[in-house]
Design a protein around this nucleic acid. Structure first.
Lengths: 136, 136
DNA sequence: CTTTAATCTAGTAAACCGATAGGGTAATAG
DNA sequence: CTATTACCCTATCGGTTTACTAGATTAAAG
């Protein structure tokens, strides 16, 4: 199940992508529009800024804004930043690989085999979708 | 991420499917072979029995055994029993549908749109895989 | 009938994680 | 200088997962 963090993060990105101009938007405005707790959204937007998706401006007239063109924002990258690994098991992950401590032989592990197939397909979908694809 | 419950459950099913005869196997034997806590595994096997995948025999010479042919065991069903919904969001689920309380319009929700696509593909993979497919 | 071996059941504790709130700091515009 | 807004750190509450403990129940074997 997707965490609320990821859900809210994508919603906020979508909200920004759908705006006509790219002037800064206050956290409170996004929070109100999307029914998200301001404080929680604050931490999410901060993370998205540190990850290079958003820019921020402090003080009067400040707020958050998209740095890149929505067409250039890859949903697989967004997912990894917000949610973490795309794979359902650490041993089936590319970017977050870790061996299972209970497995004796990874090569014959049926769970891993199945979950690798699921991961490959999920990854393909996320990589083929940009923010622009899902926002419009 | 997959819970250990699901991981252990599938591992146990695989272990049983790979056996040549279908005589009962004690919990302890499965637990030892797959490095799983006996008591935790016990609760998982019980669940799988109540769901119609396993049979159990009490007393001396007892244990658990597969009821159906591994070819007839659909991994989507197994997944739903052990892990729950296949969809990453309740609003994108067939069997466990629930509307989001923060969403004003489901039709224009970009997160839902993306997660429905992911779900469709994950579901297709799980349904196309039987226990026999992943065990051998 | 008695013993033994196994499943079944209930309760609970520890650990972890998600979500949120509070409060103070820093930068910016007017 | 003052108001506004993002930034950052800490703590808490609640739920879920994982795991363990202790006993009850059932069935086979001798």
């Amino acid at each position: 199940m997707l965490s609320k963090k990821t859900k809210y993060g994508i919603k906020a990105l979508t909200f920004l992508a759908r705006r006509e101009d790219q002037t800064p938007v206050q956290i409170a405005e996004i929070a109100k529009s999307e029914n998200i707790s301001i404080k929680f959204l604050e931490s999410i937007l901060l993370l998205l800024r540190h990850s290079g998706f958003l820019g921020a401006k402090k003080g009067k007239g400040g707020g958050y804004y998209l740095i890149k063109d929505p067409k250039e924002i890859n949903m697989a990258k967004v997912y990894r930043i917000l949610e973490g690994p795309i794979a359902l098991l650490p041993c089936a992950s590319h970017n977050f690989y870790e061996p299972c401590d209970d497995c004796t032989d990874e090569a014959t592990c049926a769970v891993r085999k199945l979950m690798m197939e699921v991961r490959d397909n999920t990854l393909r979908i996320l990589e083929n979708n940009s923010l622009a694809d899902i926002a419009f």
